[in-house]
């Protein structure tokens, strides 16, 4: 075990439940390094939803609440409202955040409440055995789309931006250094910060959607499917088509909810 893990993981809760080659552990490692570089380990409050990604904060040795499916964000809103001085970070999945929890997701973004929401997107319901998610590509076969997915997926980052998020970024589990930087920016951003991380799920998505890719093959496949703004600028249109944009996608400033609530406590009318 490396030093960062020894320093921050809740040893008695190990081993982590993740399947071999799952990207969640990589993302968690990047998060811990961001926390370490910011030196904010004692200011953290972590909230997890349900699904594989919801277990990520459970292994971090800070105050953590592992909530119901889809409800991590409202729990985080309640926590943040009572202790605005803390860095509240939500770990959620695509199904948790924009499937069952979609209503909470858009309203937290609208409120611009100072949360960091890390959404692991594996494009499938992994923990329940590989059913179609709101992020599953059109045409993909899963356990509930045996004839191919007849629906189109959500773009979670566009959704976040449209709903009012003031920091929106997308990376993949194959970009750990960029993730560390993005997590640091998001945690320090005074408002609703959303980071989507596209991850390989070799056991469910790898088997059902990708036809049996192992973890390294799957991660390589994800890397091939994405493009940064700089790369896109020099890429011919035919090569750009169908690729997902990664990087910092949106950043803006808007009054933050808990600061506005504090003004109400001081007797200022809004």
């Amino acid at each position: 075990m490396n030093e960062i893990a020894e320093k921050y993981l809740r040893q008695e809760a190990l081993p982590m439940i993740f399947c071999p080659g799952c990207g969640d552990g990589t993302v968690l490692g990047a998060f811990l390094r961001a926390v370490d570089e910011l030196k904010i380990g004692d200011q953290l409050a972590l909230v997890g939803g349900i699904g594989c990604s919801g277990w990520m904060p459970v292994y971090v040795n800070v105050d953590t609440i592992h909530t119901l499916h889809g409800r991590a964000i409202p729990v985080a809103v309640g926590l943040k409202a009572t202790r605005p001085d803390r860095k509240v970070v939500v770990f959620t999945g695509d199904g948790d955040a924009i499937g069952i929890g979609g209503n909470h997701f858009i309203h937290a973004a609208r409120r611009n409440v100072d949360l960091t929401v890390i959404m692991i997107n594996n494009a499938i319901y992994g923990m329940t055995g590989g059913q179609a998610a709101p992020t599953t590509p059109s045409g993909a076969t899963t356990q509930t789309t045996p004839y191919g997915n007849p629906e189109d997926p959500f773009d979670a980052c566009k959704l976040a931006e449209a709903a009012g998020a003031t920091y929106v970024a997308r990376w993949t589990a194959g970009h750990p250094r960029q993730l560390i930087k993005a997590f640091k920016e998001a945690i320090q951003h005074p408002g609703f910060a959303f980071i989507e991380v596209m991850t390989q799920c070799p056991v469910q998505a790898g088997r059902y959607i990708k036809g049996g890719l192992d973890a390294p093959e799957f991660l390589a496949d994800i890397r091939k499917s994405v493009v940064t703004e700089a790369q896109a600028a020099t890429m011919p249109p035919e090569e750009l088509a169908g690729r997902t944009r990664i990087g910092l996608l949106h950043r803006s400033e808007r009054p933050e909810l808990t600061q506005r609530l504090a003004a109400l406590n001081r007797g200022e009318k809004r």
């Binding site: 609440i65 729990v75 926590l79 943040k80 009572t82």
Partner: peptide, 8 residues
Amino acid sequence: NAVIGASW
């Protein structure tokens, strides 16, 4: 759920 978060 916000009540639960606030209580903690």
